[in-house]
């Protein structure tokens, strides 16, 4: 408080430009700061304005950094505790009382209703098996088998998980519609052009779709615990070509 006052008076004297009126010797006595002592022994001049500025800057940048990192963590919409099988990832704990605070925040903020453990499990893929981001302009071959489930559906979404208009009248493909190989495996082609065999229709105008992710929903699947998930197999996603 006292240092603040002294600086205030100091600026006042400067404003009145008394410096010009008072001789230099008198000024040094009234000021009390200047002396003939070596620089190291001189009392450090308190800099209240600079200290205050520093504190304000620290507060503002700390708060901004905290808010922006939280925003980024939530906007990515990818909870941290994922179980991954190849390109597929699942968040078995999301939407349950054991969920981590990030997935709770992501799910409540987006008004998303999670798949409850007794209903099934959702697995999403944002990349192909080679690790490249999925592109709605490309054709993908999705081949292999899923973990045991009474029913599964496969849907193509944009990067925000929203559906897009497809070439066909439907938005996905499910386990009751497809043809299987003799060993129970299946091959699905995800493409904007009609494809023989099992076809997952994509957008007729790929440029209008923002990114792509594939969503596998396994209904009534016994593997809802993460330990069982790590040994499970999921289909591979291989890029066949791009238009």
């Amino acid at each position: 408080m006292t240092s603040l006052n002294s600086s205030h008076e100091h600026t006042k004297t400067r404003l009145l430009s008394l410096d010009d009126l008072i001789p230099a010797t008198v000024r040094s006595e009234t000021d009390g700061y200047t002396s003939d002592l070596p620089r190291i022994l001189q009392p450090r001049r308190p800099t209240p304005v600079r200290t205050l500025l520093r504190i304000v800057l620290v507060l503002i940048s700390g708060v901004l950094l905290g808010i922006s990192t939280a925003y980024v963590a939530i906007e990515r919409e990818r909870p941290f505790l994922a179980v991954t099988i190849g390109p597929w990832s699942a968040y078995p704990k999301a939407g349950t009382p054991e969920a981590d605070p990030y997935s709770v925040a992501i799910y409540t903020r987006s008004a998303r209703i999670p798949m409850a453990p007794g209903e099934g499990l959702t697995m999403t893929a944002r990349t192909d098996s080679a690790g490249y981001s999925l592109d709605p302009a490309c054709t993908y071959r999705i081949a292999g088998a899923t973990p045991t489930a009474r029913l599964w559906t496969l849907t193509a979404n944009n990067r925000y998980g929203r559906l897009f208009e497809t070439t066909a009248e439907r938005h996905g493909i499910n386990s009751s519609q497809i043809l299987y190989k003799e060993n129970g495996d299946f091959v699905i082609y995800a493409s904007s052009q009609p494809h023989s065999g099992n076809w997952l229709p994509l957008a007729p105008d790929p440029a209008s779709v923002d990114g792509m992710m594939l969503t596998f929903r396994l209904y009534d699947a016994p593997i809802t615990t993460s330990s069982a998930l790590t040994n499970a197999t999921m289909p591979d996603i291989v890029q066949v070509g791009c238009s």
Partner: peptide, 17 residues
């Protein structure tokens, strides 16, 4: 700045629901 950012980050995440 770092410790303040961590505190604010945690508070924001926990207060969203």
């Amino acid at each position: 700045i770092a410790s303040l950012a961590i505190i604010v980050h945690i508070l924001v995440i926990l207060s969203i629901p």
